[in-house]
Amino acid sequence: MHLPCPCCGWRDLREFTCIGAADHLHRPVPDAPPEAWHDYLHNRANPAGEGRDLWYHDPCGTWLVASRNTLTHAVHGSTGLEDAR
């Protein structure tokens, strides 16, 4: 499997670390209700199919959001975090 790094282009999977859904980008304000924090941290839709998840390209230090399909394993593309939110 290969993923596109916004800096380095398509690279082998072994250069990346995944931390899960891109929901983790939407950090609530400190006084948001606990539900908002739990949604941010723990509650995930885990869709079978199209999804967006967070990956770290270890060699260059870039975080990215990859759009891919968890059923077919097709990778459609990626963006850096500044464009992802």
């Binding site: 980008l25 950090r27 850096g80």
Partner: peptide
């Protein structure tokens, strides 16, 4: 820690 700092910086205060 390096990965974490990269995340915080790129996600929340780029």
């Amino acid at each position: 820690v390096m990965r974490h700092l990269d995340f915080v910086q790129q996600a929340f205060c780029s």
